[in-house]
């Protein structure tokens, strides 16, 4: 291959991506490269379309312009069959976990195995128990999703996402709404799984501290553009006032505390239109 090494190492290559929902422009020329074997974080304020980015990578949405390539193949140009073949190599962890509510924990994890393989029942059982062991929930195999806490549900969903040993796994807000203990468990788990299974992980999050602890590479996205990228340490010490405000969680700065409005005095005196 004549291609430079950096191209070969890049598992997901997003170039000049634009996407809009109606008149609401979500991405406007985004470039993101996700290196193989790394934990890459996409961060940004709420409502910057981070989840949309994962759906674009997974081929559930089509970009308006630009391209998303996974392992050298452009996702939105794939045929249905190719796309489904690609998705077998991907795991996506939804924010809600999105477990199948009519199946218990064991069957949830077994679901992709049963759908995609003809393995004998014994082997499926062993595989499922191994995946559950990896997320520490082997003992919870008979519970129904309704009986799980939010953190446990997310871990079950993680076990399900890695059931087929994917190459790439994407996390949608894995830390949102977690108590410190399950947050710590998830943080460690994401890093451990990534290194132990040789995965490539993509984390979409606005929890700066936790994400910065495990990410190799961080992209900060805002207003439809990549504002800055680099290692967590580089971003913490960024020149940009905006990035510093985001990374350190300062209440006011370039991003105003107030939603745009007329002046408070006018509003209170009833002068506003």
């Amino acid at each position: 291959m004549a291609a430079p090494v950096s191209d070969d190492d890049c598992l997901v290559d997003i170039q000049n991506l634009s996407f809009a929902r109606g008149r609401n422009v979500i991405f406007n020329g985004v470039d993101v490269r996700i290196p193989r074997g790394s934990v890459t974080a996409i961060m940004g304020p709420s409502g910057t379309g981070k989840t949309t980015l994962l759906r674009l990578i997974g081929g559930q949405l089509r970009p308006d312009a630009g391209s998303v390539a996974v392992d050298g193949q452009v996702v939105h140009k794939m045929r249905h069959r190719q796309l489904y073949a690609l998705r077998r190599r991907m795991g996506l962890l939804f924010q809600s976990g999105a477990l199948f509510t009519h199946l218990n924990v064991f069957e949830n994890v077994a679901f992709p195995l049963r759908e995609h393989t003809d393995l004998p029942e014994m082997l499926i059982r062993d595989l499922v128990l191994m995946k559950l062991q990896a997320v520490g929930l082997r003992g919870a195999r008979d519970l129904m999703p309704g009986e799980l806490s939010g953190g446990m549900a997310r871990r079950v969903a993680l076990a399900r996402a890695i059931a087929l040993d994917p190459d790439i796994i994407m996390y949608d807000e894995p830390f949102a709404g977690q108590d410190p203990i399950s947050m710590g468990a998830l943080v460690t788990l994401i890093r451990t799984l990534n290194d132990a299974l040789g995965l490539t992980s993509v984390i979409v999050s606005h929890d700066v501290a936790e994400t910065a602890r495990i990410a190799d590479l961080v992209y900060v996205v805002s207003q439809g553009k990549v504002v800055e990228s680099g290692t967590p340490e580089e971003l913490m010490a960024s020149e940009s006032e905006w990035v510093r405000q985001f990374m350190h969680g300062l209440p006011d700065g370039p991003v105003p505390f107030h939603y745009p409005a007329d002046s408070l005095d006018d509003d209170l005196l009833g002068k506003a239109p």
Binding site: Q60, R88, A98, P112, L164
Partner: peptide, 22 residues
């Protein structure tokens, strides 16, 4: 509708299982 609301259909799609068929 609830499977859609709770993203179960979407997650099925991402597991390369076509909800139309399944």
């Amino acid at each position: 509708g609830l499977m859609k609301t709770t993203e179960q259909l979407s997650s099925m799609e991402m597991m390369a299982v076509d909800p139309m068929r399944r």
